[in-house]
């Protein structure tokens, strides 16, 4: 009986089909042999499936995907992080006090998470949006009223962007308060400031895209500043002396015209959806890499007393 055979956890005895074969005589014997053989194969398949379900980590498929054992040894725990492409930004171990919320406030990590959310929702929004003066506003109306979950998508993108700006500023505040920009992390602070600027630019270029009064006038006010650029704007100090007019100054370059119009919309779209995300991602890669290379998270470090200050190295 296959049912009873299955319980000892061993592969089905190959003797059964062989025995059937030997006894067979005539057509009926052959059929019986084939049936017996099929039964044996089925039993074996069931056995193998049971084994795979009971211990999936022993299958070749599992091993090929996850590459390392996942038992509860320190080595496996470390390898589980280090040999995973998404987790390998982490070290194997961290300062025990750094995992508490009160030191980092989690702002850097959450900013990155919100950025991922924005890339995801933004990509979905791009399916429904044409960066053209004729249809841009109508696309937003369409998104808000007809696209399934379109309104939720747009809301999440909008509020996610605001949340990201707030989180970036709070992250910077925390890094300052803990003195984490000090040696050896000076350069990573510089990268962080650039990321702050890129975050603001991302948010600002996105503001124009709905092509409504709010975005239009915000971008008009914002880019009007550019005409006052010293030397490079037609309304700025020494701009006219440098030969600047509304048609060749830095504002013209930003807007692709002398007013906020279709070219400005297209430029905002390309900066917002392609150029700045790529630049910001590159800086993020450097930022995270440098966090690791500069010795991981900065603290909480043991306090240093005033009497213990070392004399600075003379150049």
């Amino acid at each position: 009986m296959p049912e009873t055979n299955g319980n000892d956890g061993k592969p089905a005895p190959p003797a059964a089909p062989a025995a059937g074969n030997g006894n067979g005589a005539g057509n009926g014997g052959k059929v019986a042999a084939v049936v017996a053989g099929a039964k044996a194969v089925k039993t074996r398949a069931v056995e193998e499936m049971k084994g795979a379900i009971k211990a999936p980590e022993k299958t070749d498929l599992w091993k090929s995907v996850l590459r390392v054992k996942h038992d509860e040894t320190p080595r496996s725990r470390a390898l589980g992080v280090l040999s995973n492409v998404f987790l390998h930004l982490h070290p194997a171990k961290v300062n025990r006090d750094a995992v508490a919320y009160n030191y980092t406030w989690g702002m850097g990590g959450m900013t990155f998470y919100v950025y991922i959310t924005l890339v995801f929702t933004g990509t979905l929004l791009m399916f429904y949006y044409h960066p053209s003066k004729v249809v841009a506003f109508r696309d937003i109306l369409y998104l808000d009223s007809d696209v399934p979950f379109g309104k939720l998508l747009r809301n999440m993108h909008r509020w996610g962007a605001h949340l990201m700006v707030i989180m970036v500023e709070l992250h910077m505040f925390r890094v300052f308060l803990t003195g984490s920009y000090k040696k050896p992390r000076e350069f990573n602070w510089v990268v962080g400031v650039l990321l702050l600027v890129l975050t603001l630019l991302l948010s600002f270029t996105g503001y124009l895209l709905p092509d409504d009064q709010l975005g239009f006038w915000a971008v008009t006010v914002g880019t009007n500043m550019a005409r006052a650029t010293p030397l490079l704007g037609h309304g700025g100090p020494f701009g006219p002396q440098m030969g600047m007019t509304p048609f060749n100054d830095v504002r013209f370059g930003l807007l692709g015209g002398s007013i906020v119009d279709s070219n400005a919309l297209l430029r905002a779209y390309i900066w917002h959806c392609v150029a700045i995300p790529i630049i910001a991602s590159a800086f993020m890669v450097v930022h995270f890499w440098r966090v690791r290379k500069d010795g991981g998270i900065s603290g909480p470090a043991p306090v240093v007393l005033e009497s213990e200050i070392k004399e600075p190295r003379k150049i």
Binding site: T178, K182, S298, G299, P300, A301, V303, V304
Partner: peptide, 9 residues
């Protein structure tokens, strides 16, 4: 100032 590197103060 070398102090306050990695802790609130």
């Amino acid at each position: 100032n070398p102090l306050g590197n990695g802790y609130y103060t």
